[in-house]
């Protein structure tokens, strides 16, 4: 198998052995969804109107929570420096890590999202749109998060600063992500929003490995 696959496999294997992290993240995602009704009341119509926003906010927060594990451990034990010596371009390695991170932190959330949908009184059509919107939007979140994690990886205790950097940058994802689920007041714009979301996602995923690789290289030496 190619070096790309090896890096990808290593990440997945490490996560499988480490165990708890993925489950904790899913738990956090569901918990945010569970907590919101306590804040805004159990009224079904309000909940189902706010459901797309709640699902996306929950996804946002969980992605930010998992951001620091993307490069931090590998930076601290020197693995990143070793990986830079590999034949494979460093940006490709970062790309593999980003894909692995998406599989480990975003996909479980999407799988768990029907659970939130039931609790937040979403109907089936909205749930379908929510899953599609999360599938298309989360790669952009992971890609932006990778940039944030790469920029802050050489800062000691930089775990707090990456979310602060990435949150404003990720606003378009939130806007179009929620826009792709809810149909809004006027004409149905969800199709257009989904296309914009896909465009942002493609661009972010295409650029992020190079940008993150650059930031890590220059942050380390």
């Amino acid at each position: 198998m190619s070096a790309f696959g090896t890096v990808l496999g290593r990440e997945l294997k490490l996560a499988a052995r480490g165990g708890g992290d993925v489950l904790t993240l899913v738990l956090f995602f569901v918990m945010v969804g569970v907590i919101v009704p306590f804040a805004i009341g159990p009224d079904k119509t309000t909940l189902s109107r706010l459901a797309p926003a709640i699902v996306w906010i929950a996804a946002f927060l969980s992605m930010l929570l998992g951001l620091d594990r993307l490069f931090r451990a590998d930076h601290e034990d020197g693995t990143l420096i070793l990986l830079r010596q590999a034949d494979l371009p460093f940006s490709a390695i970062i790309g593999a890590k980003v894909i692995a991170h998406w599989l480990l932190t975003a996909l479980p959330l999407i799988i768990a999202s029907p659970l939130l949908a039931i609790m937040l009184a979403m109907d089936v059509a909205t749930l379908g749109r929510a899953v599609v919107s999360l599938l298309i939007g989360t790669p952009a979140l992971v890609a932006l998060g990778a940039i944030g994690a790469a920029v802050t990886v050489s800062i000691r205790g930089g775990g707090l600063i990456a979310p602060v950097l990435i949150l404003p940058m990720a606003i378009p994802v939130l806007i179009f992500g929620v826009g792709a689920i809810s149909t809004g007041v006027g004409a149905d714009q969800s199709g257009a929003a989904l296309l914009f979301l896909a465009a942002i996602s493609l661009m972010a995923v295409a650029l992020a490995p190079f940008v993150a690789a650059l930031a890590i290289k220059w942050g380390e030496d």
Binding site: I147, V151, S154, L165, P168, M169, I171, P172, I175, F176, G179, G184, V185, G186, Q189, A193, F196, I200, L207, V211, L214, A215, W218, G219
Partner: peptide, 26 residues
């Protein structure tokens, strides 16, 4: 490192502007 992030922002700010405009008209 900050130069990299600043340029990411420079690319992203027009996108943010566009998305916010789209959102507010909606």
């Amino acid at each position: 490192v900050i130069a990299v992030f600043t340029l990411v922002g420079a690319v992203n700010i027009p996108i943010i502007k566009f998305s916010v405009d789209w959102w507010s008209t909606l």
